[in-house]
């Protein structure tokens, strides 16, 4: 591909338009409120970002393969609750409890994946039901009360929710998790054999199967991955705020899907971009934060978030049409 052509396709790419939109938003917020770019506020945004961002990485791969998962928010709530119950009531070692929590996520993801691929029910319905089951389980086993999370300093707390200062910025270790997992996801989707399979499955499942690609197995593993990442994010969050609430993560599934599609990944599968998802995650985080700062009333701010997401999607659709025409 000649350089000029490559450059124009880069400019037309959904990641690029998301990035421009993100920069514009940052500028607007920064002008409207000087505190937006203050170290404290940036540190605040960066504390929340990885928790949803980590789930969004798994969701991007899953969406690229043509499926999605509505149960991530509920898993985000259940996993840390189970861990804390095991530690507090079961006297289980924290490390073992964390492992058990992640294994539970593996099981939830595997059930989602098996029902979707082997019985052939759409992932929308399967994971919607799973959302209810998982959220219900979290509420029932806690009787609706939040649990005090593990707060004794130690290896796992540092690993999941430790913090460090760079200048006047305060970052959590979760940011490293997000950075590391992002790099891995970029590698897998763009450069590994598996990424080729994931895109092919989402683009034309029958074609992939006809070439010997194990489409069902790939999808099941992606459901498991997404579930595990949601559980991990829930544990990070619970450790950071020292509380495990059975209603934590309510509504996260839609927020995460919004991050992914705003970044330019197609809801219909086949086209996924991790870089876009990172921009999408940054964008939604800063929208939520910036809107509060510039004084939009709290009850009104979902209106703004919705409008901005719609605007992004319309922009992507128009660019796509343009590209198809040329």
């Amino acid at each position: 591909m000649p350089v000029g052509k490559r450059r124009s396709s880069l400019i037309r790419s959904p990641q690029f338009s998301s990035l421009i939109m993100f920069i514009v938003l940052l500028a607007v917020f920064a002008i409207a409120d000087a505190n937006f770019l203050s170290p404290l506020n940036i540190s605040n945004m960066m504390a929340f970002l990885p928790e949803l961002g980590i789930i969004a990485l798994g969701m991007t791969l899953l969406l690229t393969a043509g499926e999605f998962d509505l149960s991530v928010g509920a898993v985000f709530g259940l996993a840390p609750v189970v861990v804390m119950l095991l530690v507090q009531n079961g006297q289980v070692d924290i490390g073992v409890a964390l492992l058990a929590g992640l294994l539970l996520c593996v099981a939830i993801g595997a059930i989602n994946g098996l029902i979707v691929t082997k019985i052939g029910i759409s992932s929308f319905l399967v994971t919607l039901s799973m959302l209810l089951v998982v959220r219900g389980a979290a509420l029932y086993i806690t009787q609706g009360f939040p649990l005090k999370s593990w707060d004794q300093p130690g290896f796992f707390v540092t690993l999941l929710a430790g913090s460090f200062n760079i200048g006047s910025f305060r970052f959590y270790t979760s940011l490293w998790w997000f950075v590391g997992l992002s790099l891995l996801a970029i590698y897998v989707l763009r450069y590994a054999k598996l990424g080729n399979w994931i895109s092919a499955i989402g683009s034309n499942r029958n074609a992939a199967v006809a070439r010997g690609v194990p489409a069902d197995a790939v999808k099941i593993w992606l459901f498991i991955l997404t579930s595990v990442l949601a559980g991990l994010a829930g544990m990070i969050s619970a450790f950071r705020i020292s509380a495990a609430s059975p209603v934590a993560g309510t509504g996260y599934e839609l927020e995460v899907i919004a991050m992914v599609v705003v970044g330019g990944t197609a809801l219909t599968g086949g086209r996924g971009t991790i870089l876009g998802t990172i921009v999408g995650a940054l964008m939604l985080r800063s929208i939520r934060n910036g809107i509060v700062l510039i004084g939009v009333p709290g009850l009104a701010y979902n209106i703004f978030v919705g409008v901005i997401i719609l605007a992004m999607l319309i922009l992507h659709a128009l660019l796509q049409k343009n590209a198809a025409r040329s």
Binding site: N196, S199, S203, N204, N206, A210, R211, V213, G270
Partner: peptide
């Protein structure tokens, strides 16, 4: 076997389609 219109993944490049399932690594 080349099926009616189910043989290629439209969102992948020609090169990636040609080697789908038999990728050189």
């Amino acid at each position: 076997t080349i099926h009616q219109d189910t043989s290629l993944a439209p969102d992948l490049s020609i090169a990636r389609n040609l080697f789908l399932g038999r990728e050189p690594v």
